[in-house]
């Protein structure tokens, strides 16, 4: 069975139902609107570029076992598994990846959401605050005293 999805900028995508159902939101909508599937499902927060990418991801992972519990993703218990395809998939610029995270969040595609968050975490890992500021073009709004105090408060986390 096929399902049609419409991006925020009006582009229509047709995918297999089981692929679309990796999105919790779509899955729930399909249950509610069982009888009425003639018109495409509108995704108001997701642009065509991101939606194409999300669908690409879902196509590849259509047969994965579903993980419902968010706690299972907690990396301290179990690291998120990434296969070669996923690694290839995440080679995009960071703006695109953040858009993808937002899309995965609004569509509730949990595995992609966690993959994206891992990617985001990997970006800032082992970076200094200055490097992070440069990368994301944000300003330091701490006074020297505040920086001092933070330094003091965080001393117990130093490696």
């Amino acid at each position: 069975m096929k399902v049609t999805l419409e991006s925020s900028d009006g582009q229509v995508f047709t995918v297999d139902k089981e692929v679309a159902e990796l999105s919790v939101i779509i899955k729930e909508m399909l249950v509610i609107e069982q009888a009425n599937q003639d018109h495409p499902i509108p995704l108001l927060n997701v642009g065509a570029v991101e939606l194409a990418k999300v669908i690409e991801y879902c196509e590849h992972h259509r047969n994965d076992p579903t993980i419902d519990d968010d706690e299972d993703y907690d990396s301290r218990k179990k690291p998120i598994e990434m296969d070669d395809w996923d690694k290839q998939f995440t080679i995009v610029n960071k703006e695109m990846m953040f858009e993808l995270i937002l899309a995965a969040n609004s569509m509730q595609v949990k595995p992609l959401l966690h993959l994206g968050c891992r990617y985001a975490a990997d970006i800032v890992k082992r970076m200094s605050p200055t490097e992070i500021r440069d990368l994301f073009q944000i300003d330091d709004d701490f006074t020297p005293e505040e920086q001092d105090k933070i330094e003091w408060e965080k001393q117990w986390t130093k490696l």
């Binding site: 800032v124 709004d141 701490f142 965080k154 986390t157 130093k158």
Partner: peptide, 20 residues
Amino acid sequence: LICQQLNKHDLTQCARVNKK
């Protein structure tokens, strides 16, 4: 979700970026 992936050291660095 992002913070769960980071260790204390990385979190500390992030905390020093800005107030937000």
